[in-house]
Computed example of a mutant assay.
Amino acid sequence: MTAPPRISIIIPALNEAEGIADTLAALAPLRARGHQVIVADGGSADATVELARPLADAIVDAPRGRALQQNAGAAAADGDVLLFLHADTRLPPDADRLVLDGLAAGGAGWGRFDVRLTGGAPMLRVVERMISLRSRATGIATGDQAIFVRRDWWERAGGFPPIPLMEDVALSTTLRRRGRPLCLRAAVTTSSRRWEQRGVWRTILLMWRLRMEYALGADPERLAARYR
């Protein structure tokens, strides 16, 4: 008998001791159904690794940087589908069924979820809608949307480019050349702290400006410095 498809969930982490245990505990039902959870640590100076170890299938040490950490996690994964999950993001409970059934039914090789932000400010509901609509219109996904990709598509794409920002946009652009993403309407829930700390409108304008400059060929190192 053929084994059912398996998802490897890869979480890049850096000093995430405050929330990593809750993130991984939420994935316990998926592990119980046979899926794999890998934490790719970028040199945390806190208790991230110690807290994560009993709640993950593997801890991978990687050079600091989300692209490098996710690539290292993917290299250690053995799933048929790779799913990249930020440490402050939660999947819907039936994420594995949605991903596997969606990929099988639609013939797509990759995809992403809609997004829900944790904050209660009304403007955040507008931001959620904008993110999802933009992604559907452009075929580009961001890391907050929990990008997933079949292993064969991942290998042909060559993984995330080793850049400090826009690695998700770059990978999406490469994958889109082979086919448009599966856009799942089910939402992942991700922290709104970035929007709340910087201000919603300020963050919107910053992200639009950075994406435009990246599309025009700006150096990702310089963009990353402004993003921080």
Score class of each variant (00 low, 15 high):
residue 177 R to E: 14
residue 36 Q to Y: 07
residue 86 H to A: 14
residue 43 G to V: 05
residue 74 A to M: 08
residue 161 P to K: 13
residue 166 M to C: 14
residue 107 G to S: 09
residue 138 T to V: 05
residue 151 R to I: 02
residue 112 R to W: 08
residue 65 G to R: 00
residue 86 H to V: 08
residue 54 P to D: 13
residue 70 Q to M: 14
residue 175 L to N: 01
residue 56 A to P: 15
residue 38 I to L: 10
residue 118 T to A: 15
residue 36 Q to C: 13
residue 123 M to A: 15
residue 151 R to N: 03
residue 176 R to T: 04
residue 131 I to E: 15
residue 106 G to F: 01
residue 174 T to H: 04
residue 115 V to Q: 11
residue 175 L to E: 04
residue 168 D to Q: 07
residue 108 A to S: 13
residue 95 A to Y: 11
residue 62 A to L: 09
residue 94 D to Y: 00
residue 95 A to W: 11
residue 90 R to M: 10
residue 66 R to Y: 01
residue 160 F to W: 06
residue 69 Q to R: 06
residue 35 H to G: 10
residue 158 G to P: 09
residue 88 D to W: 05
residue 67 A to I: 08
residue 36 Q to R: 14
residue 103 L to R: 02
residue 131 I to P: 00
residue 174 T to F: 05
residue 162 P to R: 10
residue 171 L to K: 06
residue 90 R to W: 04
residue 143 G to P: 00
residue 73 G to F: 05
residue 125 R to F: 09
residue 167 E to T: 00
residue 125 R to W: 03
residue 94 D to H: 06
residue 146 A to Y: 09
residue 99 V to I: 15
residue 49 V to A: 12
residue 135 S to Q: 15
residue 176 R to H: 03
residue 73 G to L: 04
residue 112 R to S: 09
residue 150 R to H: 02
residue 122 P to F: 07
residue 74 A to H: 02
residue 64 R to K: 07
residue 158 G to V: 12
residue 85 L to F: 01
residue 46 D to A: 08
residue 140 I to W: 02
residue 121 A to R: 15
residue 102 G to E: 10
residue 117 L to F: 15
residue 49 V to I: 13
residue 153 W to D: 00
